[in-house]
Design a protein around this nucleic acid. Structure first.
Lengths: 224, 224
DNA sequence: TCAAAAGTGTTGACATTACACCCATGG
DNA sequence: CCATGGGTGTAATGTCAACACTTTTGA
């Protein structure tokens, strides 16, 4: 239906997505290069406008798909940005998401209707971003650190079958720290969180590690 | 500026506020009674539409003030509700806040332009609410439990000068549990969080407790 | 002098940390 | 047979939970 109250009219809603992965034991964020004004040729988080006839979640999935080709991404809203001048064209309220993904599973599309490059950036090498995305990016990293203990986030960063050293690597990359290998292993196994798959990874030049999977329907337990 | 893209037009933004306090050692939420359609005569959370020319934070403060008379309330966004049918008049995206307040400091206005009653409800006695506010209320309580360890939330629920038993009462009311008085006290004092004001409360029939205040610029520390 | 509630100290249980040794693999 | 990295055990330390007694106040 048509909006008649002039006080409410002309408000748009942006979905802004900080998409993270772990690659080479480093926390990385997905950036796209804009091919249109405003902020043409600048790197940006994956973002776009929500349509009238879709929920925020549906619009977010659509925007991520259109700009990267990614599907079925786990997202978590974490902040709202409502400065009146955050977008030069019209009043766009920005709702920001953390998204986490196992980058081995996916292929990023680099050229789309509004973008002409896409890449994973180590979070310490992120350039200045379009709009207010630099601020959103910093907030996203901090939020991710706070929330990484949630099992579904950790799950999304790992393949379905993984080893305990891989799990440790996720924690160390996100929290930018190190843990003792033996204590980490002991802690995780004691939480009754993992299913022993009775299989081993196949790798060269070292003792292969055991493969595990998360048990189904586990409540969040803090590993660290 | 005018919005021309029909895909984005006609989206309104609601601020929906679950305002909590501790009264009689119980966690309570502030509800208002609606005097207009839709949902006339039903209880609701404190909510309203954000205007084009104000930030979300400013619009939230304005709505809370207009519907309750309250000012300077600490708010924290926690969720976005975007079902297409959540408001019968037009597409209204709802952004929900947790708000916390020390009810001793304030006076609630019961009659306003759109409401004709307002009251604190023990969270176990909350009736069915207007719009999707019942769902939002439940999410708010859960979020508050998750976040109560943040110092600024606890601060907002207490007067400027408070005793350790009062602090313990806040935790017990929010988390619906009990703690050992001696262990709680020991833990809090060991965190270097509080300033001893070298004063005592003045109360009848019992040993008066020492008064404390939070130290300035303290990072969040989990008491429990 | 009594009831009510606050302050403090000790102990055992449990969790976390630090650290050393052995094992399996591919080259 | 060696380099790499995974698996496991133990002792020291730190944190948390349970619990008893004393203190201060107003009535």
């Amino acid at each position: 239906m048509e909006c008649t109250n002039p006080l409410y009219k002309n408000q748009g809603i942006h979905t802004v997505n900080a998409i993270f992965t772990i690659e080479d034991a480093k926390l990385k964020v997905l950036l796209i290069k804009r091919s249109n004004e405003p902020f043409k040729d600048m790197w940006a988080l994956v973002s776009g406008a929500i349509y009238n006839n879709e929920t925020f979640e549906d619009g977010t999935s659509r925007e991520i798909y259109e700009k990267t080709g990614l599907q079925n991404i786990k997202t978590k809203k974490f902040e709202v940005y409502s400065n009146l001048d955050r977008s030069p064209d019209m009043r766009m309220l920005g709702i920001a998401n953390i998204c986490v993904i196992n980058c081995e599973k996916v292929n990023i599309i680099k050229q789309t209707r509004n973008t002409y490059d896409a890449n994973w950036f180590d979070i310490i090498d992120v350039p200045t971003l379009a709009f207010d995305h630099s601020k959103i990016f910093i907030d996203a990293v901090n939020y991710l650190k706070e929330q990484i203990y949630k099992n579904d986030m950790v799950r999304a960063l790992l393949p379905n079958e993984f080893t305990i050293p891989m799990l440790q690597c996720v924690y160390e990359a996100v929290l930018n720290t190190t843990y003792d290998r033996r204590n980490f292993s002991k802690k995780v196994l004691g939480l009754d969180l993992l299913k022993d798959l009775k299989k081993q990874e196949e790798l060269a030049g070292k003792k292969p590690a055991k493969l595990y999977a998360f048990k189904a329907n586990i409540n969040d337990k803090k590993i660290i």
